[in-house]
Design a protein around this nucleic acid. Structure first.
Lengths: 228, 228
DNA sequence: TGAATAGTGTCTTTCAGACAATATGCC
DNA sequence: GGCATATTGTCTGAAAGACACTATTCA
């Protein structure tokens, strides 16, 4: 593992921080924007809720580490995942110097299923409006993530991550309303969202209740696209 | 350096990557967007141009590390500095696993002065349109930074970082044109930039050449503000 | 036919973009 | 007066926002 030029070039001689990834998994459930939290079983912050996360392995990229943690903690795969920000205050972790690369992921509520093996009391989704006290600087990370999500909603198709494959325009509008925290005019919303060309109508209708069924749409692309 | 089960609570026993900060210092000079590069004196990529950067010390935050490197390499202080993105491919550095947190900084050309002690052949500003081959994945970092700068120009007052305290509207327009890579109509530019309320007129005029002098403006705030 | 949600169009205002003539200073 | 850059306003088209009625299904 040593470099042959070790005397000069061996960076392994420096003190090194630990590096983790932490994950913000957003979903929408019961008309609320929620995030996945896990209850810590160890010191520090034992018993407190925290973002899922873990150490970056030496042979995996940051993206891979985030994907792996996401899969391990929530069973979620193939969802939108993007690096958020790196938090590295020297005292943010009382154990040692830990720098964490935060990621955020989006999943429609249909897409995640918490592992059956997991004690439900130790992992769960919490409304971002009613979060418990969080370990480390995770509160700050959550707020940063919500800001990012809210602003990307305005200039990208990022909402595809929070709706199922097919959805009604009313479903989609609700997503926008929940995240932006305000009501949107139905006609203006439809006019605008359809004019972006991001959506394609399907041939399906949503039969649901004693009223006119809604035409279902899908996102033409499920890759992140910026508009404007 | 081997992990054992007992090491669970002692994160210091895990293999740890090295963490660096790399810096993109943007400036505008000779009607070009330029970045600061330094010539590497050591393996790997000896003799090749690279972004300035260095290891994060155990007792400093990432922001502090970036500020320190910026000061050490360019003598620049008190300029706009923002975290860009964290790059962590396992093989991006041939020495060992190195994760780098990239920052970008902006300085008006009046603000930097390369240290007299530095051999000019080993540090310099390069137009982003004519970059030499860069070490590591620094090309990718540069491109990411330019994208960020270009997009922030559209919805923030970030241009304050690239102009001196006082400037004419023509000066400012040039900054936009250089970064966006296109010509802008003078009347429309003035209309729009003045309507944001980000600028305040000063009482000074720029006397420069045999023609009408330009009124100088300044940014009302030199903190980053998003508009729209 | 009543209840519930889906679906639709117009008007007004605002903003972006195209476009050219006058103003002011120095020589 | 000539030169060089600064400064200014109108028109048009597109998009955003306010606003209310009709359509469809099921019970």
């Amino acid at each position: 593992m040593m470099n042959t030029d070790a005397s000069k070039y061996d960076v392994t001689k420096f003190d090194r921080p630990s590096v983790t990834v932490d994950l913000l998994l957003f979903t929408i459930e019961d008309e609320e924007l929620k995030i996945l939290l896990i209850k810590r079983k160890e010191w520090p912050f034992e018993g407190m809720w925290a973002l899922p996360g873990g150490f970056v392995q030496m042979d995996e990229s940051l993206d891979q580490a985030a994907k792996r943690e996401l899969r391990e903690e929530s069973g979620v795969k193939n969802v939108f995942l993007e690096q958020l920000y790196t938090f590295g205050e020297p005292k943010r972790d009382p154990r040692t110097r830990v720098i964490t690369v935060a990621y955020y992921a989006l999943a429609a509520s249909e897409e995640w299923n918490l592992k059956a093996s997991t004690d439900a009391s130790e992992v769960g989704f919490f409304s971002v409006k009613e979060l418990p006290e969080l370990a480390f600087d995770h509160k700050e990370i959550v707020e940063y993530g919500i800001d990012r999500l809210r602003s990307k909603l305005g200039y990208s198709n990022i909402a595809f991550g929070l709706v199922p494959e097919e959805f009604s325009l009313t479903n989609l509008q609700k997503v926008y309303e929940i995240i932006l925290g305000k009501n949107i005019d139905k006609r203006n919303f439809r006019k605008k969202i359809l004019s972006t060309g991001l959506l394609s109508p399907t041939t399906h209708k949503q039969m649901k209740g004693a009223h006119r069924p809604a035409l279902l749409y899908k996102f033409s692309s499920r890759k992140l696209i910026n508009i404007d």
